[in-house]
């Protein structure tokens, strides 16, 4: 009942704005992956359910098919998508929590990053203004259709049950899906298909036999 599909057409996927702006596609991929990792880690630190991170990562990938990395840096966009996704998934987080958590995971990664972010200080205020501004850009670029009804994760347990596989396979497939969100699969393939691929890989890795024929 949401907008039927969030898949992007091939001609858009083939031409990313960053590449058009002179960023190589390898660098673009690295930035996407880095941004998604920030989102994942922020979500874990704030004890959010996976659906918030998935939505944020989905928004981020869609955003970078609209705008170039040269205009919007990965950190700001990751933060904005995260902040927005929490609201969308009914788990709103304070702007303050979002800023502190992102500053923390950023400075863990970047040696030269400033060590502190003082509440109400000049750096805090400029980050906050940037976050609010970027959030609006994200909404605008996505045309205000931001609700992802069916993440691939939703199908895992259902399929695992039908295929009569165990918990380990489900967990392994779930992990693959979490990792898959680093890339823009969610805009290329339907969620059911991604879920099937994850289960297939998990069954292979754990040497579990999958049924070879359709059963009633």
């Amino acid at each position: 009942m949401s907008d039927d599909s969030v898949l992007l057409p091939a001609e858009i996927l083939a031409r990313s704005p960053s590449v058009a702006d002179g960023v190589s596609s390898e660098v673009e991929m690295e930035h996407r992956i880095w941004a998604c990792e920030l989102i994942q880690e922020a979500g874990i630190l704030l004890r959010l359910p996976m659906v918030c991170m998935c939505t944020a990562q989905n928004l981020l990938h869609r955003f970078y098919y609209r705008k170039s990395l040269k205009r919007f840096d990965a950190l700001s966009v990751a933060m904005a998508c995260f902040f927005l996704a929490c609201k969308i998934e009914e788990k709103p987080r304070r702007i303050r929590e979002t800023l502190f958590v992102f500053h923390y995971i950023w400075r863990c990664r970047v040696k030269t990053a400033p060590r502190t972010l003082d509440l109400g200080g000049p750096r805090y205020n400029s980050w906050k203004a940037d976050l609010v501004k970027t959030e609006r850009h994200v909404l605008k670029e996505l045309g205000f259709s931001f609700y992802v009804l069916d993440h691939a994760h939703k199908f895992i347990l259902f399929y695992v049950k039908i295929l009569d596989l165990n918990r380990d396979v489900a967990q392994r497939a779930w992990n693959y899906l979490n990792d898959s969100m680093r890339l823009d699969f969610c805009l290329r393939y339907r969620s059911e298909v991604i879920a099937c691929a994850a289960i297939f890989m998990a069954a292979r890795a754990l040497q579990k036999k999958l049924p070879t024929e359709a059963q009633d």
Partner: peptide, 24 residues
């Protein structure tokens, strides 16, 4: 007013858009 400088885009407004885009 949605550009609330304190907590970003208003939660209720987002909710309303999300729901109305979903239920037709």
């Amino acid at each position: 007013r949605a550009g609330d400088p304190v907590e970003g885009v208003n939660f209720q407004v987002l909710r309303e858009i999300k729901m109305l885009k979903g239920v037709k």
